[in-house]
Simulated assay, not measured.
Amino acid sequence: MRHGSIRVLFKQTNMSNLLTDRQFWVNYWESKTGLSVNIPADYLFHKELGSIISTQNVKTAIELGGFPGYYAVFLKKYFKLDVTLLDYFVHQPVTNALLKANGLSESDIHIIETDLFNHRELQKYDLVLSCGLIEHFNDTGDIIQRHIDFLKPGGTLLITLPNFRALNGWFQKSFDKDNYDKHNIGCMDPELLAGICRDQGLQVVQAKYFGHFSLWLENEQQKPAGLRMLKKSLWLAGKVLTKVFPFNSKQLSPYIILEAKKPV
Results as ranks from 00 to 15, higher is better:
62 I>W: 00
33 T>W: 10
223 K>Y: 01
56 Q>E: 15
132 G>K: 15
8 V>N: 15
153 P>A: 03
243 K>Y: 05
245 F>R: 03
63 E>G: 08
11 K>W: 01
150 F>G: 00
42 D>F: 02
103 G>R: 00
105 S>I: 07
9 L>I: 14
234 L>T: 01
40 P>R: 00
186 G>Y: 02
38 N>C: 12
63 E>H: 08
168 N>T: 13
1 M>Y: 12
220 E>R: 10
187 C>L: 06
196 I>R: 10
68 P>V: 12
3 H>Y: 14
41 A>T: 04
43 Y>C: 09
118 N>D: 04
177 K>W: 03
195 G>R: 04
10 F>L: 09
17 N>E: 00
29 W>I: 03
22 R>W: 03
100 K>S: 11
165 R>S: 08
12 Q>G: 02
106 E>D: 14
39 I>Y: 08
39 I>N: 07
76 K>D: 07
154 G>V: 05
88 Y>V: 02
4 G>W: 05
112 I>D: 10
66 G>D: 02
219 N>P: 03
156 T>F: 07
75 L>Q: 09
248 N>Q: 04
44 L>W: 13
201 G>F: 10
240 V>W: 00
61 A>F: 10
179 N>Q: 15
58 V>I: 15
208 K>R: 10
130 S>A: 11
124 K>Q: 08
201 G>C: 14
103 G>I: 01
55 T>Y: 00
199 D>A: 13
256 I>K: 08
116 L>F: 06
